[in-house]
Design a protein around this nucleic acid. Structure first.
Lengths: 206, 206
DNA sequence: GTCGGAACGGCACGTGCCGTGTCGTAATCC
DNA sequence: GGATTACGACACGGCACGTGCCGTTCCGAC
């Protein structure tokens, strides 16, 4: 988005628009954001915005994600749990708290209404992030630190899901302690007496 | 919402408004829903809507939740895993697929923009549902089917979180098989060789 | 009953923002 | 250096908002 505007002035204009978008979203909230206000704040004609982004949601997505080009990389200390924990701390601290937290939450909300935003969000952020997590888990598995039939994607969902749930559904902040608990539960399980699962015919893990 | 309109005609009017809201949301999507269109479809003045609901989001929330007054109850076969699984199947089938799925997803999206909707959603649906899950788990724990230090709220988040993640973030449908995997992973854990967790200092489960 | 206030449907209004069109100007490309 | 393209500014029609005002209908109190 905006990638085809390569001139010096054009880039400066795009950045000015993104900055105005974030300022206004921060001041009044995404719901009350208007293209007209962004154009006025950025000192730009409305056409210039519409020429670069197809909708308010697309502009907002681009503005928010551009803040975070340096993605969340996983450290590689050899300890898979410690590495996951450190990355999750960083992600939760950045995306779960002000100033970026409310904006990211609004972005996720908008993705529920607009399929284009949902697709772009997935392509630009969710999928790459998922891939990084899976790659890190895969490396641990290949080194014998995890069971050979370890389900990488399922593990990724169990790590991320509860955290998004906490923020989006339960409307409560996520602490480092909460991250620790999720990690512990994922790897150790919560079965009775921490060994054999209670009755039922559920499949073995992995 | 609307609880103070008790007359026969008033109740019929409210139901007519809710029905029109759901019809139009189904036809055009929540984003393109307008109060004017609802009023016209319901054969009602705009004032009548504004008198009962403070916003489009509040009206939509009320309309969607009124469809599901009969909440998701847990069976009590004595097998905690089987009971959880059966309830989760029902919830996923109803809220994760058309016709109700897209509406529920829009409702969750709106809750990210509007604190009033978020609070009402929590009070009317999320919190009671959470309480039902916790109560069912607590009963199992008290019967010795789960570890005494079993963390009920954490377990609830680990059951629900990945499912919401799958729908809202990954934008993929939730199958019964997926529910089975989450349940298995929660109780058995995904640690290496399904016993001791890999290095790190994470706390024990619960 | 009937009577008075509240809620009603219908209509109109001013406002805000949308997305587009049209200027004359400035930057950019060949 | 000439043509093309993007630009800021402004205007436009359109839509939906939320509110105010009609005259009518409903409904509980008396």
């Amino acid at each position: 988005m905006g990638a085809e505007w390569t001139g010096t002035k054009a880039i400066a204009r795009s950045e000015s628009i993104r900055r105005a978008t974030l300022e206004l979203a921060h001041e009044r909230g995404f719901a009350k954001l208007s293209i007209e206000a962004v154009a006025a704040r950025a000192g730009v004609g409305k056409h210039t915005i519409y020429r670069r982004w197809p909708s308010k949601g697309a502009l907002f997505l681009d503005a928010v994600l551009a803040l975070n080009e340096g993605a969340f990389e996983y450290p590689e200390t050899g300890d898979i749990v410690a590495d996951l924990r450190q990355q999750m701390y960083a992600a939760v601290d950045l995306l779960g708290r002000p100033p970026l937290g409310p904006l990211y939450r609004s972005l996720l909300g908008e993705a529920q209404h607009d399929p284009a935003v949902s697709a772009a969000l997935n392509e630009r952020f969710i999928a790459p992030q998922t891939q990084r997590t899976i790659a890190r888990l895969e490396k641990a598995r290949d080194r014998g630190q995890l069971s050979p039939d370890f389900d990488l994607e399922l593990a990724m969902s169990i790590l991320s899901g509860p955290i998004y749930f906490q923020v989006l559904i339960a409307d409560e902040p996520v602490t480092h302690d909460y991250v620790d608990k999720v990690l512990a539960a994922l790897f150790a399980g919560m079965g009775p007496r921490a060994s054999s699962p209670p009755g039922g015919d559920q499949r073995p893990p992995g």
